[in-house]
Amino acid sequence: MVRFEHVGLRYGTPAGSGQPGQGKPSLAPEVLRDLSFTLPQGSFHWLLGPSGAGKSSLLALMHLALRPSRGEVEILGHRLAGARRAALPALRRRIGVVYQDFRLLPHLSVFDNVALPMRVAGRPEAQLRADAAEMLRWAGLERKLTALPATLSGGEQQRVAIARAVVMRPALLVADEPTGNLDGPQARRVLALLQEMHRLGTTVVVATHAETLVAEHPGPALWLAEGRLVRHG
């Protein structure tokens, strides 16, 4: 389950601080304002809204790349307010993330990129080899095990990124514009992989601009505008 309650987020330090003669320093504007919603475990949600609405920031809060400036965030049963920093890595291992720009490690092979979360988690080498190879077969990349990311197409790189995101069977999977750089057939294939994870019980949140994709796969959505949640359902 993902629960947000009156959550606000602002970046950086207070604007104008340290400048004499300006009185009380003004704070940087909030990029997310007073968000409150709950995503049940095992649900699939689109995250929609125009550019700059705060979709990426909201996803960053969900996968613990940011911490809220105010309000309460609960991810997979863990409240983040007051959570020790040392406790977050274990929670991050239960969250899969797919980025628009893939964020694969360029010096690692496809296999090693997918095996990376298991190595981070300390999985024995003998065990992870079979799992990573199996995941790449699932993503249709069994012939690309030793390839470097730079030699793959955009769609293939995104499928590697998805394989990396789901190889640990995350309880929460967030995807930030996962089809943004892909053509129609590639985008549909990527989405099919995400929906398959949803069918297996993973909570999935996909931020997108692709209206046609949403129309083809209607489902509950969170609409953001100027950092506020304007519709949920």
Binding site: L105, L108, L116, E134, M135, V167
Partner: peptide
């Protein structure tokens, strides 16, 4: 991972990889 994911049944034979850099994910050798 195989069960329920539409993944082919587990095949124990994993293709032999070149010398893996996986143990150096940060690329610290360079």
């Amino acid at each position: 991972m195989a069960d329920g994911m539409g993944i082919p049944a587990r095949q124990p034979a994993v293709p032999r990889l070149r010398r893996s850099r996986g143990r150096d994910p940060l690329g610290l050798r360079r």
